[in-house]
Structure formats: structure tokens, C-alpha cells
Design a protein around this nucleic acid. Structure first.
Lengths: 197, 197
DNA sequence: GTCTATAAATTGATAGAC
DNA sequence: GTCTATCAATTTATAGAC
């Protein structure tokens, strides 16, 4: 079915373009015309695939969510040691540090913008789920390391908070050094937490 | 000079209204009409006091900055022990936890929005200065506790990152518990860091 | 299914009377 | 200095031709 194939192709191309622009310029500063242009789709056609700008943003969030779960699954398969899995999580922002410094965390900054721009709506709730996915997965890893459920949850919240706060600060101050040194510190903390007996 | 007094009065009333709305709805979702209404000033009059919406936002940031410096000065006078000063900083978000849960940190969320909405402009740079004020003051306190300049800087970045990340997470997840438990943990960390010999 | 043209709404900014 | 009325621009969303 070539028609359906082309359709799905254009749809995912729109999502890809929107994901990039939402990260770089944010939701408000990204117009549908921008997305259409980057995806090489005529403006009026966007509404055939997505009824509203909000729906397009929701699709972007779902794509982020799928990508996150995919990475988590990959790391779980790659390492038997949960600590090594968490170390991969810590290294990811450093591997794309240019982008983090210039535009912030693609998940955290989107969450924050949607909380202001669309607080209470399904869109903001979808955004919030992104951070939940992080915390839930981290909590699983800490539990696998031997922490009790409540403790694992607290450690997960601490890890995600530290990462998000550091990315916000490093982005705002445009400091790659801050990002690197703080993430190194978090890794040291990670190596010593929930010690094996 | 009663005319000038009324003028200054209206001006500062506009800033007060804008500060409240910027925190609750963010920059983009706050229209000049909203600000004018809350400040009880006719819409067309806003432009007499502030040439553009950006200038109004800059005035809001300056007012945040002044309030921050005032608080820091107060705490410095109140406590000879820098650790006690930093503890006050940690308690402040808990004292206004309802507002933090519902709208996030008034400084951090503004920074993040301006980085997306007005990246590179004087307005975004003014916003970034807010976080710098935090870090600089914290670094001074850690140095007064006996830390070397570089170490004090790193500790300040860690403290501010943890606070900002926690507020982002607690706001996004609407969890007062998360806010309280993580801030308690940060306070425990603070009590043990840079130990007196 | 695809696209052009345009409607509709919001809102920042200004002109000009008083 | 103060305010009303309005302009101008942006952008989401839709109507309708092909």
C-alpha cells in the first residue's frame, strides 16, 4: 500500500521536524509554518495529519517517550549491573553536551514550557509523563541494587532532580564546564550509593 | 511632588502585577491587557511607562533581583554562621510550597521560558542573571565556611542545581511530598558539607 | 489525498483627542 | 500625563479547488 506508506512517512516526518524545533525554539516560538517547511510539507496539509498544534506536540511527546523507553530497554539488555545502566543515563547528556548547553534538556525544558503555556491540559500532562518515565525507571534500577521501594524512589528523585537542575543551570549560564563537573560529581555519588554488603 | 509620586506608584504597581502574572502564567500567556487590568491601569497607558512588553519584563526581573539581594543581606545580618544563612535559603521554597507546587520557582521557570522565547536577547540575559545571583551568594557562604574558591563554586552550583531540579520535578508532578523530602535531604547534606576541623 | 488562499482571533503597539 | 480607539502583524485553523 504505497499511499498509506507515503502518508505515514509524511506524518512521521512532521513529528521529526516538530521535535527538533520544539527543542530548539520551544512550543510557542515554533509556528506550524516552520514545521511544515522543515518537513517539506505544505502548510495547509499539516492539519490533515494533526488537527491542532497541540495534537502535533502530543505526538512529539509520544515519540520522546518511545525513544526513552527504547534506550532504557537497550541499557537493561546491555548491562546486568543496574549501576552501569544508570551510568549510561548520566553519560547521555554529556554525549550531546553542545545541544544541552545551547537548548537545554529536550524533555525538561518542554515540560516546563508546557506547564506555563498549557497548564492543566492533556498536553501538559503528557509532558509531565516524560519526567515520570525517568523517575520510574531509575527507581527500578535502585531497587535492583538492593534499595527498599521507598528509598529507591527517593534516590531516583534525587538523581533526576540533580540532572535536570544541572542542565538548567548549565544551559542558562552556557557553561559546558558546569555540566561536566557536576555530572562527574553525580557519577561519584552514584558509585557509592546503596553499597553492596 | 504629587504627580511624580502617582507616576512612580503606578509604575511599581504595573511591575507588581506583571511579576505575579509572569510567575503564574508565564511571559507569553500574560498579555499587557491582563497586567493593565490587575494593576488597574488603562491598557493604552502601559506603554507610557514601558515602551515594550520586554521592558516591562526586564523591570520585573530587576525587582526579583532586588528582592533577592535584600533577602541575602537580611540573612547575612541575622546569622553569623554561613551554614545558617544557607539553611534559610533552603527553607524559603518550603514556606511558599503551595505556590512552588502550582507554578514552579518564580526565578527558575522564568529563566527557562526566556531562554526559549527570547534566547540571546538582553531580556534572556537579564533572566539568566537571576540564577547567577543565587550561585554567587551561595559560593560566598561556602567560602566563608572554609571552602577554597573553586570548591565553594562547585558546592554552590550543586546546591542551586539540586534546588532548581527539585522544584521542577515537584511542580511538574504536583507533589508537595517530593519537595519536602528532597529539601530535607539537601539540608542534611548541607549540615555535613565542609566540616569544621 | 493534496494544496492554495483566506478567514478568524489574538495581541503588541501607536495615533491622537482631551 | 491620561486614555480610547485602532492599526498591524502574527499565526492557528478552515474552506474549497484540484
Amino acid at each position: 500500500m504505497p499511499a498509506a506508506y507515503d502518508s505515514a512517512e509524511k506524518r512521521s516526518e512532521l513529528v521529526r521536524a516538530a521535535r527538533e524545533l520544539l527543542h530548539q525554539r520551544g512550543f510557542h516560538r515554533t509556528s506550524l509554518a516552520d514545521v511544515a517547511e522543515l518537513a517539506r510539507v505544505p502548510l495547509g496539509n499539516v492539519h490533515y495529519y494533526f488537527r491542532t498544534k497541540e495534537r502535533l506536540a502530543e505526538a512529539v511527546i509520544r515519540s520522546h517517550e518511545a525513544a526513552l523507553r527504547e534506550r532504557f530497554e537497550l541499557w537493561s539488555k546491555k548491562h546486568a549491573d543496574p549501576r552501569k545502566r544508570l551510568r549510561e543515563l548520566l553519560r547521555a547528556p554529556l554525549d550531546s553536551s553542545d545541544s544541552v548547553i545551547q537548548f537545554g534538556c529536550p524533555h525538561g525544558s518542554l515540560c516546563q514550557e508546557l506547564e506555563k503555556l498549557a497548564s492543566g491540559t492533556p498536553l501538559a500532562k503528557a509532558g509531565a509523563r516524560l519526567l515520570t518515565v525517568y523517575v520510574d525507571w531509575c527507581a527500578e534500577q535502585f531497587q535492583a541494587l538492593g534499595a527498599k521501594p521507598r528509598e529507591a524512589r527517593a534516590l531516583a528523585e534525587q538523581l533526576v532532580s540533580s540532572m535536570q537542575g544541572t542542565m538548567l543551570l548549565a544551559h542558562t549560564m552556557r557553561s559546558r564546564e558546569l555540566l561536566a563537573s557536576q555530572f562527574r560529581r553525580i557519577e561519584v555519588w552514584l558509585n557509592g550509593v546503596v553499597p553492596k554488603n
